[in-house]
Write a protein that binds this DNA or RNA. Structure first.
Length: 419
RNA sequence: CGGGAAGUAGCGCAGCUGGCUAGCGCGCAUCGUUCGGGACGAUGAGGUCGGGGGUUCAAAUCCCCCCUUCCCGACCA
């Protein structure tokens, strides 16, 4: 992609009102734009990151045997009355009447909808287990949206729902999702702390939260100063908390919830008539689990964890581009032909390449490159050109390397230039 | 929903104890010079001072109401 023909509106100054680092950088790097409080547009760079995260999620969910669907955002309120959640979730539910006077709402989550769907098609234990998932926009009327896309009124979630004939099946699916989540976050470049948690408005028995430690976290985990052990905050241990591994003291650190999985049981299937006929000929409610990831929030979490004072440092797996080429003198034919050559070669080898061909000063290109945080950088400038070299820079490690013209793509392809 | 802060050009801000044609930086446009860490000069475009009402000879500036945004708290996946 040629930057001059693309849309990456970077900002030099911190937009007023943006306090959290991830909020500042997501605006400055041109990832997102606020329409109104808690409602954001995704710009090309932000959308690329979103798509890469979604791709990882899809691969791992599919590998775990889940099938992708897309449920509606628009729901009739009656279905929410059947489970009583029109009451328990009324504070976050955006409701209105359509022109026919029908009471509608925008889906804050989808247990009711998916259960209604499964109810219609699943009649027998032979059709179980089944796990469906979607990546979709959720709407929650948050009293207080916070930190940009961290807590928004409209946000993107991956939500999966498993249906089983018995508790054993649920346990297996739950464990499968638990492992899939670990892979997803690890592949995204995030270190998570998994803690047992309260099921809240979802209901059900067991649940686990996947937390990333971050200053802007609205929750907390405990961390051992000795061995590095991490775990959930247990109220019973709030006053004196020895580490279960090394007995040293634990301290509480703020953490951001990016995933939450629940063993729901039969709350929704029973309320909505999600029944099947078991092997013994008897009708039983399906046993459900649900599994959520805050996909858009992941972007903020990634920035919180991977940045420095100059900008974002995207992990390779989620970066909007793999390589950025910086031709410093766009008027110089040797510079530009070299830039175009690397652009072609790297693209043909499967890299996503951004080339900053704007007629801007070197300083601005460097600063913008640091800001948007593409992992690898090729700098083509007079300084090294005369001796037949260009500069490679690793944004993550800060390492730079001067290499000959012909070593560039080989080094990147072989992964030789890794931190 | 309680407490605090703030709304002036696309962005960041100054001006506000009432007083001249509303200013600065960045960005933007044209021209010239630059070209390895947010270059320089010249010229220029761009404003319902969040909205409404009031006080006054005169309101960005004072008073009242409303709207919006951000932060802390409560609430929440």
């Amino acid at each position: 992609m040629y930057w001059s023909k693309y849309f990456i509106p970077t900002l030099k100054e911190v937009p007023s009102g943006a306090e959290a680092v991830s909020h500042q950088l997501s605006l400055r790097a041109g990832l997102v734009n606020m329409l109104t409080s808690g409602v954001y547009s995704y710009l090309p760079l932000g959308l690329r990151v979103l798509n890469r995260i979604e791709q990882i999620i899809r691969e791992e969910m599919n590998a775990a045997g889940a099938h992708e669907v897309l449920l509606p955002c628009l729901h009739p309120v009656e279905i929410w009355e059947k489970t009583g959640r029109v009451e328990t979730m009324k504070d976050v539910m955006i409701q209105f009447k359509d022109q026919k006077g029908r009471r509608m709402c925008l889906g804050p989550t989808h247990e009711e909808i998916i259960t209604d769907l499964a109810r219609q098609y699943v009649q027998s234990y032979r059709q179980l287990p089944v796990t469906l998932y979607q990546i979709q926009t959720k709407f929650r009327d948050e009293m207080r949206p916070r930190f940009g896309i961290v807590r928004a009124c409209e946000f993107i979630m991956k939500d999966a729902y498993s249906f089983d004939k018995d508790a054993d099946g649920l346990k297996k699916n739950y464990d499968l999702m638990y492992e899939a989540y670990k892979k997803i976050f690890s592949r995204c470049g995030l270190e998570v702390t998994i803690v047992e948690a309260d099921s809240g408005a979802m209901g059900g028995s067991l649940s686990h939260e996947f937390m990333v430690s971050s200053d802007i976290g609205e929750d907390a985990v405990v961390c051992c100063e000795g061995c590095g052990f991490r775990g959930g905050v247990n109220d019973a241990l709030d006053n004196s908390r020895p580490c279960p591994q090394c007995r040293k003291s634990l301290k509480k650190i703020p953490a951001l919830e990016i995933g939450h999985i629940f063993q729901l049981g039969t709350k929704y299937s029973a309320a909505l008539g999600g029944l099947f006929v078991d092997e013994d000929g008897k009708q039983k409610p399906m046993i459900m689990g649900c599994y959520g990831i805050g996909v858009s929030r992941l972007i903020a979490a990634l920035i919180e964890v991977h940045h420095d004072d100059k900008g974002i440092k995207w992990p390779e797996q989620v970066a909007p581009f793999n390589v950025e080429i910086l031709p410093l003198q766009i008027g110089d034919e040797q510079t530009m032909s070299l830039a175009r050559r690397y652009y072609q070669e790297l693209q043909s080898q499967g890299f996503e390449v951004l080339i900053d061909d704007r007629d801007e000063s070197a300083g601005r290109k460097f600063n913008d490159a640091d800001l948007i945080g593409i992992p690898y950088r090729i700098v083509i400038g007079k300084r090294n050109l005369q001796t037949g070299h260009v500069e490679l820079k690793n944004r993550l490690s800060g390492e730079t390397k001067i290499v000959g013209f012909d070593e560039v793509t080989g080094d990147l392809v072989k992964g030789a230039f890794h931190a």
